[in-house]
Design a protein around this nucleic acid. Structure first.
Lengths: 344, 344
DNA sequence: AACCAATTTGCCACCGGTGGCAAGTAAATC
DNA sequence: GATTTACTTGCCACCGGTGGCAAATTGGTT
């Protein structure tokens, strides 16, 4: 267990004061070239790395970012996390992951405590936690750096990255309509989430452009899990009159629809078109592969992390200038087809 | 941005020295009851929470654990992460996630640097990084607390949690044999991973008990991804002579087999039995649902984290006593059946 | 009342860096 | 050559806790 070199060791060996070593570490401009190279040489010889705790204590920086979320889909979380980590590792930050309960009364308190306990430099907040205005308010008041991921612009450009789910859902509507579908059902996510209402409204809007209206009893609310996808699909597909197309709020529920259709002997896409939202791994694995909306999750994560680090490093203007909006896109696979009997 | 209370504030208001406050925080025994309650009252009134950086600087503790892995399956990682976080949050630790490249020459250096930069109290290492003996050696030498997750006992009980993949694969072999299968293929994982060789050897051993031998050209190596599952399945299923059953090293590759079988018009399970390994989300979502081996990932994560924290808190004996071995179990679903034409 | 042991509390140095300011040094100006 | 200016470097206090040890308090004995 070899002892770790300290700034004092470096200073002594390089024959300078530790303040100068500190300057070299932090890339201060006012260090002479000869001094700088000498110090750098010693640093690399000793394989010295500054103690982040001491550094943090003295300068109120930890080089730690937090990721706050509540029980998201594993695939979504993984995508986000990879994106965030990519930027982090390039810029010398580490990531602390922190699940929490969105609907808990102590949400705000929990999150603030987490931030100050670990002295995080900033946090990235995922939906649905990102939709909490009280949390955003508290973060702002505490002076913390934060960026939210969402389906709607809840905040100023500096603090948010949004995906235009509404437009994407409208595009799916257009696609369905062009395939000749008129009897269309929608399995929504929980109505308390913005992403759910955005997608539903976008879909309805898109359909109405073709004169198609979503019947109220063909809008069923699930909770974004595979299991509720199955329940909702049963309701739709065991009824007397069946839809010819179902759009689910996410891929998990769409996979549930496929399962039910299969068990009822309904052929997809010949007798029923099914589409999801997300384009996560599941979408391409199931049979038939799902037509879906690709949400640029990774890109959102990259943007969010870049913004966050910019605002931490006191460059708020630059943070505001990073694009804050991304566009999900339609991905057509095998689970959708022209409606049977249609021939235009 | 209200200023955070410090130990000095607490001490002043409670009318004691900060050393005493420190004792209360750390649950030292030698504090009088009246003093203790007085201090505790002030602490909760001020909503005081100690600065972990200062604490860490003084006591070489950070209450930060690390999770080290290399590009694992999203679903596996998510399971592990949930398990680890559950224990962490109960015991007051936070988790820093750290992907790395297993095959990089600088792996050991990267990991050690990560640990000392963030002053982690300990790390949990996932396969395949966990199979690196040089890393384990380096961690041991640096005096770090660590626990490895693996398919084989690479280390002493204190530092490892293993799943008996070999026995589980043998059970799958038994199950296949009892269904009457004799023409059996195996899609292995990369042979440089212990988990791959363990599963393959276990499977072969299990089959040999029934006098069945895996033909060399029916052992194909994939790399545990869906895509290579597809490639391997093509080789097997487009050949003149086809197997009646395929066991894949994981669920992702088994899903690839299902896809190929479907596209070739081969009915599963009527004409071909398919099984995977892991029992992740995908296994139950695909059609037909996969027969597979359930790996108790979450349980392993819980055990590993408990062990790690025990060893950090200087209770090595207790850490050694926590069970270090878990048994994966067979889960029969819809993708396997008695071989066509068999009637025993 | 004096003494002793056990328990509780306080003082001060220190962990390893950074901030502010003063001092030192070299180049530029007159 | 003296003075000004700009640039480098060093000194010391401080961030907010903990460790070691000494001091103070408590209660029980003789």
């Amino acid at each position: 267990m070899q002892k770790q070199a300290t700034i004092n060791d470096v200073a002594r060996i390089a024959g300078v004061s530790k303040r100068t070593v500190s300057r070299v570490i932090n890339g201060s401009l006012s260090v002479g070239d000869t001094t700088r190279t000498r110090v750098e040489k010693v640093i690399s010889e000793l394989n010295y790395s500054p103690n982040t705790q001491a550094r943090g204590l003295a300068s109120s920086r930890s080089y730690l970012l937090g990721l706050i979320y509540d029980n998201p889909d594993a695939l979504y979380l993984d995508d986000v996390q990879r994106g965030v980590l990519e930027v982090c590792s390039n810029l010398g930050y580490e990531l602390v992951v922190h699940p929490c309960r969105y609907r808990s009364e102590t949400l705000v308190q929990d999150c603030l405590r987490f931030m100050q306990r670990s002295k995080l430099d900033g946090v990235i907040v995922l939906p649905p936690v990102s939709e909490s205005e009280t949390l955003a308010q508290a973060l702002k008041e505490s002076g913390s750096a934060y960026v939210r991921l969402s389906s709607v612009a809840l905040d100023d450009a500096k603090h948010i990255v949004v995906s235009d789910d509404r437009a994407a859902a409208a595009e799916m509507a257009r696609y369905f309509a062009q395939l000749g579908h008129e009897h269309i059902a929608f399995i929504s996510g929980p109505q308390r989430y913005k992403s759910s209402t955005e997608r539903m409204e976008g879909f309805q809007l898109g359909l109405s452009a073709y004169g198609i209206k979503l019947q109220p009893d063909w809008i069923i609310e699930g909770n974004n899990t595979y299991e509720t996808g199955i329940e909702c699909a049963r309701q739709l597909l065991q009824a007397e009159e069946k839809p010819t197309a179902i759009f689910a709020n996410n891929d998990q529920m769409a996979a549930g629809v496929l399962k039910v259709a299969h068990s009822l002997g309904i052929k997809v896409p010949e007798q029923l078109s099914v589409a999801g939202f997300d384009d996560n791994m599941l979408a391409s694995r199931v049979i038939p592969a799902l037509t879906t909306i690709k949400r640029p999750v990774r890109q959102m994560a990259l943007l969010a992390t870049s913004k966050l680090i910019m605002s931490i490093e006191n460059n708020d203007k630059a943070a505001s200038n990073v694009a804050a909006k991304v566009a999900p896109t339609l991905v057509v696979r095998e689970s959708t087809a022209r409606v049977a009997g249609s021939n235009d």
